[in-house]
Nucleic acid binder design. Structure first.
Lengths: 224, 224
DNA sequence: AAATCGCTTAACAATTTGATAATACAAGGA
DNA sequence: TCCTTGTATTATCAAATTGTTAAGCGATTT
């Protein structure tokens, strides 16, 4: 999964084709178009798009047929497919989805909504790759529970990790002591005021790096 | 991933809750319900569902709020979320999708269509999952229930196998004790706290290999 | 029927973490 | 300068968490 996603749109109405193409390109996608089913198959084979948007009603092969044909080939086993249709007939929609489509969108549809759906699909696809916060040389991996500074892993205890992760989630922002207590300790638990300081100190010590600034009378902020 | 998918439905209308629950259960899903936003969050944390269906309009926290809260937690970073809404307002739909939902469904909706959508989402998710995991010299065949390290087969008991397979499914990721319990033991069974430890110990022993790291207060992770 | 296996639990040891108290330090105002 | 307020440092102790071992029990095998 690399940089620019390729999207193939197949629809027999030039207007729709154009407006969708325009909007998707504006989002940074690489758009290919086709005017009918056969052309869609041809283009799909040629470009191997990441996503195919198929109008159901098209001259020649209709969208569902195209989907079936493509899905039979290993190369398109995992390709995203969205059906586009004027029919809001329940049976067709269910059929479309069971055929192996990833979404089914009924016309009339606004470009914005379609773009959102497309984004959502790609977002889902890319998930699973870990979400790490990266600030300068400091990497914070919430999933692996690891901090890494200039290549060296830093082991922090739970509270320390959560505290630093909170501060680093918005570099520059000053977190009030109350805010910190609520986020890290929760509203139930009540702990003394010095507790935060002590943890801050331990973090500073373990990081050996002056990235947490004290704002007297207010709170703390993270800044590299 | 365990066989049966868990779905959490949150809606304040008992009728809808019931009809969706019925239809999804008929499809073989394990369904949990919640009557409002707060309950949804609670249940989500408790059961770690694979999919969450959220009504947007609910008393207390609304669906979008719930989604935001959950998405902030690493445990729900990749959980599927579908919004359910009576509003067919374009702005809301776009907003919902950009918030991190995987689909947005407008009421009135027939159970059939929803079920199809759910199936489609899971189908997509399962694509690309392999039965054989290979990490370094360690091979794990989930289907044959066989582990092999440097050419030697390793015999693990079922729970041990599933536990290690789970940890190894995402090397580096820290699995919370809850996560482990849900995935390996399921939500029904309740077992004592030391049970996990004992299995971990046996795995460590049998593998004779220091590949499972304890993250105190958090969970365990696999790393070669 | 005896032996074995897999799973869970109890009991206790070992370890780590987190909160607090006590004390020192810094900056601003009277 | 001397308070006052707010933060830093350090050591200490209690609580939380995990490791280890042995034992119990039901299911399966011999």
């Amino acid at each position: 999964m690399s940089a620019v996603k390729k999207i193939l749109i197949a629809d027999d109405e030039p207007d729709i084709l154009e407006i969708l193409q325009f909007n998707l390109q504006k989002e940074g996608y690489n758009v290919i178009t086709a005017k009918n089913g056969d052309e869609a198959i041809e283009q799909a084979k040629k470009h191997q798009p990441d996503l195919i948007i198929l109008d159901i009603m098209m001259p020649g092969k209709n969208g569902i047929e195209v989907c079936n044909i493509l899905r039979q080939q290993p190369a398109f086993y995992a390709t995203l497919i969205i059906f586009l249709s004027a029919i809001s007939d329940e049976g067709t929609e269910v059929w479309g989805l069971e055929t192996g489509a990833d979404d089914y969108v009924t016309k009339p549809i606004t470009p914005k909504v379609l773009v959102s759906k497309v984004n959502a699909l790609f977002r889902r696809l890319t998930k699973g790759e870990t979400a790490i916060i990266q600030i300068g040389d400091l990497k914070i991996d919430r999933e692996k529970y690891i901090m890494n500074y200039q290549g060296n892993d830093i082991i922090l205890a739970r509270k320390e990790f959560e505290l630093l992760a909170l501060l680093a989630s918005k570099p520059g922002k000053v977190f009030l002591r109350n805010e910190i207590l609520n986020q890290v300790w929760g509203t139930e638990v009540i702990v003394g005021d010095r507790t935060i300081d002590v943890h801050i100190r331990k973090i500073r010590q373990k990081l050996g790096l002056d990235c947490i600034t004290t704002v007297k009378g207010v709170g703390y902020k993270f800044e590299l």
